[in-house]
Every structure is written in C-alpha cells, then in structure tokens.
Design a protein around this nucleic acid. Sequence first.
DNA 1: CTAATAGTGTCTGTAAGACAGTATTCC
DNA 2: GGAATACTGTCTTACAGACACTATTAG
Lengths: 215, 215
Amino acid sequence: MQQTPFSVRTDTVLFTVQDKRLQVLLQKVPGKHQQWMLPGGLLDQEQDLDVAARRALARATGLNNVFLEQLYSFANGVGPGKQRVITIAYYALIPLDMAQGAHDAMQTVRWFDWQSLPQLAFEQLEIVRMAQQRLAAKLEYSTIAFQFMPAEFTLSQLQTVYEIILQAAVDKRNFRKRIMALGCLEETGGQRREGAHRPAKLYRVKQPDVVEYIK
Amino acid sequence: MQQTPFSVRTDTVLFTVQDKRLQVLLQKVPGKHQQWMLPGGLLDQEQDLDVAARRALARATGLNNVFLEQLYSFANGVGPGKQRVITIAYYALIPLDMAQGAHDAMQTVRWFDWQSLPQLAFEQLEIVRMAQQRLAAKLEYSTIAFQFMPAEFTLSQLQTVYEIILQAAVDKRNFRKRIMALGCLEETGGQRREGAHRPAKLYRVKQPDVVEYIK
DNA sequence: CTAATAGTGTCTGTAAGACAGTATTCC
DNA sequence: GGAATACTGTCTTACAGACACTATTAG
C-alpha cells in the first residue's frame, strides 16, 4: 500500500486568567512580521505525544509542570502534492501568578484576550474555540479551575475565575457553599489584606495536581 | 529542521449491544492466523480524519452513516530506525439490529464481548478501554444511548442498554420518568408482542441523528 | 389460572438557587 | 464614619432515588 508521508505537530492552547480576562498565549511566527501562532512544534523522536507537547511549550515559554491535556486532532494543509500535516491539539492552564513569568521569559510570546486574537491560521482559531468550550464545560463537572490558582488564594479570587470563564455572575454564598462542600480546600491560616476592607482568608488546594470529576 | 516521517492511521472501536453484552467489532489481521485488530487503516489523501475513519469502517463492515466520534490520539511503535505510527482513535455505535449485518457482510470481522477480547496490540486494548469509559460517561450526560436503538424500540430495550453499559440495575419507574422527561421520544402508536405477557409500546427518537447534552 | 413482562405514582431526602445583612479594615 | 470587600444562613424548589401493585397477554 502506498503511503503518504506526514508531518505531525503538537500545538497547545495555554490559558491563564489575567486582567479580568481569559487569556491565551501566542508565539511570534519566526521570520514573519506580526504574525502569531500557538506554541507547538513538529514531533520527532519523542516517545509520547504529551511529552512532545510539554517540551514544545517549555521551549516557547520556559514553563514546566503545567496542567496539560489532549484536546483533539486535525488533518490540515491538504493539497495535491503538498506534504500533509497532522495537528494534535492540547490545552494547558497555568496559575494566575505564573502568567507574567511566561511573558517575560522570551520576547517572542504574548498573552491575548481569547476573544480578540490576532490573525491566526484558520485551524488554530478553531482549536482555541474548542479549547475554551472544553474548559468551560470542565469547570462544571471537575475541579479543573484550581489549576489556575497560585499556592495560596482567596475564595473571591477563585470566584472571579469562574465568573470570567463562564461569563456570568455567580452568587457568593452559593458558590462558597458548593466549593467548600468539595472538600478539596483547606485554610492556610493566613490572611490577605489589600485595601480598605476586611482581609480575606487564604486557602490552598489539598492535592494541587489532582483534577477530580465531581457530581 | 529534520523531520521524521510518520504513518498516520485511524482505528475505530465499533460498539453494539447484543446478547446482553456490550460488544466490539474486530477484524482479522490479513495473513496472520487468528489475530485480530480494530477496523481502521492508514490515512492517505482524505481531506478529513472523520472521513478517513468512516471510510475504513465502511471498508471493513459495509456500514455507512453510523454515529462516530474522535476519541484520542496516540504515538505508537516507537523504536530506533522504525517508522513511527500515529493513531487517531475513534469510537462508533450502531443500532442493535444492524450488528448482524456487520457480521455477515464479510467473514473477516467478528463481534467480541468487550471484556473478553482476544490478543490485541497493546495500544488497541488501551483504546477499547478508553472508548468504553467515554461511552459510559456519555450515557449519563447525553442522549448517546439512542444511537444503539433501531428505528422503533421499547423502553425495556432501552433500559437494558443502559444496564449493560453501566453494569448496574436501573429502577424501571425512575428510568422511564427520566427518559420521557427528555422529550426526545415519541410513541409510534405500534406495539410489540413477544411472549406470554402484555405487549410493549413502541417508541421512536424524534431526531435520531442528534446527540444532545442533558442536565 | 399461571407465568411473564409492561406499565404506573407517591414519598422522602438532597442539592441548587434566590435572597440581605453583619464584620472588618483603611483612610 | 464612609467606603470597600469578606463573610454568613434560611427558605424554596426541583430532581433523584426508594419503593409495590395492577394490566395484559399466551398458553
């Protein structure tokens, strides 16, 4: 059987929440002026797709050990005589306080509001859309939102993350009841003062690396 | 940048429910004695991965227009000097009354209870496990189970499908209450007699091609 | 009349959602 | 004391689950 040769790449939608917006990290297309793309790269001798995606993300941002999950695969760039490209899309989340680090690490990357991205290859826009949908869905039935949280955080911070991603206001009392009922958080004992008002209790996630299904 | 050449294949876990078991269709490995594999094939100039998966499935089984969804992608067969293979896994469902057709179409395929499969390549066993988990999860939050149903069916048949996939007994009254509340079914007006007992009403799915998220 | 499956309603407990006032701090 | 955010509890409603008897048929 005649086989077509393929290139295979992983591309990752890296999310964070910053400035009251859900943001996506994009990387400059090398050599091209003001063109952007998802961080990613061609697959070579990596054993594992996840490893390849993590490595490409680390190369672009300097970030390791982020939450990362496979999203969907696409066949792009079809055309007679062209080499075909298979894209394995991933999405990843980093805590609020690491976003600045990603930005500074190299000057080739930048955060964009996910709803006002610059020009991207068509399939990459589709990937971002799909990733945002998956993220919003997972907020409802898993503890994925904790992946956005720094080591210590207030419940108001967490609520803000939910409101931004779901694009809807959330009732404070019901939210706290629900979150605390999960049993995943514990008080650190510390407080945060940041204005002319009562200080907020700080919490931490008991098992920060575990994303659980709930309900 | 040096590129490794890849083969890309789609492999599909085709499910049906038959003989009170969730069954998976496997295909004989050509040339090999008593070895089985998931129906699938190498990708060539297909425009779309879904199209390729459907075509490979149709080639093996003669079936078209089945419910089919992408599952996950894997990088297999790693080894120095070897050509690497990327597998895009799919899963598909067919109605109870089409399973016999798939079996008869060619003598190269057979249904197996998903819990007692013959020897398979390791990654294919993993794919089946993952597909079964996805299917069981989707039963709870979507109308995917209707994809197993023939054009007309009884509520007891439908309940049996749920019980087999979830591997748990279901209360008849609560089940009917919940299913009818979805508003996806309508009575055909017909009945089915099949024994020394009261005949069952027949139902059909209002929009058989739509799988909805519920709750 | 027996055996076998189809069909049906109520009660109870739990979880989600609506809703408003007090507490603490900084200036 | 004013402004700003943290923090807390009750009531109502909807859905999920437990539970048992009648209906209809073939033989």
